[in-house]
Design a protein around this nucleic acid. Structure first.
Lengths: 112, 112
DNA sequence: TTAATATATGAACAGATATTCATATGAAAG
DNA sequence: CTTTCATATGAATATCTGTTCATATATTAA
C-alpha cells in the first residue's frame, strides 16, 4: 500500500465530496448493462419498435435463448418492459433515460 | 436456431435500420468502461478535480497499482488525459461527454 | 387430450476482467 | 552515482459474464 498522499488537503476535500460507494456502485451497474454488444443491439432495436423475442433474435443474429437471457437482465435493470399477448411476449424500452444514455454514448463514439 | 420470425415485415424493416455491428460494438465498449465501480469512482473524483495517482488511490480506498491499471484503460478509451510534472502524473477528464454520460447515468439511478 | 409454438430457465463451459504481487521505469534529491 | 519516490507494467489468480444446450413452462390449435 503506497500511502503517499501528495496533496493531502485536496485529496481529503475530494474524498468528502464523493458520492457514497453504494450510489457509485449502482451507477456502474447501469452502465454495465449497456456495456454488451447484444444488449446494445436489443436496446437500439427496441428504440425503433416494440418487438417480440424471436424478432429480436432475427434482428441481432442471435439465438432465442441468448436473447431471452439478456432480456431478463434488461428487465431486472428496469430498462425494458414487456407485455404478453397469447404466446407472444412483446418488449419495449421503459423510459427516455435509456434513449438519452444511448444517444450520448453514440455521440461520444462518433466524435472520436 | 428458432427461426420463427413472427412479424417478418417489421423485423426486416428494423433490421435494415440497425446501425452497423461495428458502431454498436464501439458504443458498448464505451459503456463497458463506465461499468466498473473503481473506474466510476475515478471518473467522479476527476470530475471534482485534477488528481494524481496516489491521491486517487487514497480517495477510492484502492491500491496504487489497481488505480494505475484502471487509469491506463481510461486513457486508452480517451476518457481521461494526463500531464506529467516531475515524478507526478496528473489525470483529468478529457471532455464534457464523460461528465454528461455520468450525470445521465446518475439521474437514471436516482429516479428508480 | 395432444401437438405445436413462443418463451423462459438451469447447468455447464469458455472467455473476459479486476485485483494483487513483484518488479521495472523514470525523475528528483542527497 | 545512489537512493528515494511516484508511477507503470507483467504475470498469476479468482471472479464474473455471455453463450450454448437441453429442457421446462405456458398458451393456442387440432
Amino acid at each position: 500500500m503506497n500511502e503517499c498522499i501528495l496533496h493531502e488537503d485536496l485529496a481529503k476535500k475530494v474524498k468528502n465530496k464523493m458520492l457514497s460507494d453504494e450510489i457509485l456502485f449502482d451507477i456502474a451497474e447501469v452502465f454495465k448493462i449497456f456495456g454488451d454488444s447484444t444488449r446494445i443491439k436489443i436496446i437500439y432495436a427496441l428504440k425503433l419498435s416494440e418487438l417480440c423475442v424471436c424478432d429480436l433474435a432475427f434482428i441481432t443474429n442471435s439465438t432465442q435463448s441468448a436473447i431471452s437471457h439478456q432480456l431478463r437482465i434488461l428487465k431486472q435493470a428496469k430498462l425494458v418492459k414487456s407485455r404478453k399477448d397469447g404466446k407472444v411476449v412483446y418488449y419495449s424500452l421503459k423510459d427516455n433515460h435509456v434513449i438519452k444514455l444511448f444517444m450520448i454514448g453514440r455521440e461520444h463514439v462518433e466524435e472520436l
